[in-house]
């Protein structure tokens, strides 16, 4: 069964509702054994990376997610979930799961009128032939809420980019059986649901 990781970082029920809407009945769990043995794993999250990483470790969920990843089954990271999949985040100077090479940095703009967090609907330019990305079009808009952004070390892990305040950042990450979005698929209307549906059908074998 698909499993949504519960680590007190965000509204897992919104994610569960959206999954159900696209025909993917998923269980919410904080149990490392259930997480490690899921058919498909959804790793959402909002809030502070610092406390989120601490909570993951204290529950043994960090190792459970790594164990799951090794099985080669599809893993979806959303927002903070994406950021924690990288090696490190500037937020609280925390080491993260390290499934993707790279780190997260805070938005810094010389222009004070550019607001941080980046909140609202913004476009994604997709740059990949990934099966999930194939369901979407460049210019599709999704709902973002974040102050930190991912910088994958390898360009081929960047599947989508978004421009904010004159800066282009990575908004979609892909690596092997892992797919992750900086935006909230579950709150991005029908296009978000379409992407979630594409994830639910993805076998991660190609």
């Amino acid at each position: 069964m698909p499993v949504i990781v519960d680590y007190d970082a965000g509204n897992v029920r919104s994610v569960q509702r959206a999954c159900e809407h696209v025909g993917m009945v998923a269980e919410i769990s904080a149990d490392p054994d259930i997480v490690a043995r899921a058919d498909r794993l959804i790793f959402p999250g909002v809030g502070s990376a610092e406390s989120a990483v601490d909570t993951l470790r204290s529950r043994g969920l960090d190792e459970a997610i790594k164990t799951f990843y090794q099985t080669g089954k599809p893993l979806l990271g959303i927002c903070l979930g994406l950021q924690i999949l990288l090696e490190h985040t500037e937020e609280g100077d925390k080491d993260c799961l390290g499934l993707v090479e790279g780190a997260c940095e805070r938005f810094e703009f010389a222009d004070r009128s550019v607001k941080v967090p980046h909140i609202g609907w913004n476009e994604v330019e997709f740059d990949s032939a990934h099966p999930i990305v194939n369901a979407m079009q460049s210019g599709d808009e999704f709902y973002f809420v974040h102050s930190f952004y991912a910088k994958p070390f390898n360009d081929n892990n960047i599947l989508g980019r978004t421009e904010y305040g004159g800066q282009t950042f990575c908004s979609v990450v892909g690596h092997e059986n892992l797919f992750a979005t900086q935006f909230h698929l579950e709150k991005s209307g029908e296009l978000g649901l379409r992407m979630l549906k594409a994830f639910s059908e993805w076998t991660a074998s190609c």
């Binding site: 919104s14 709902y143 579950e186 991005s188 209307g189 029908e190 978000g192």
Partner: peptide, 8 residues
């Protein structure tokens, strides 16, 4: 509302 509406 949450069951039908997938925007914030």
């Amino acid at each position: 509302v949450a069951d039908q509406v997938y925007i914030p």
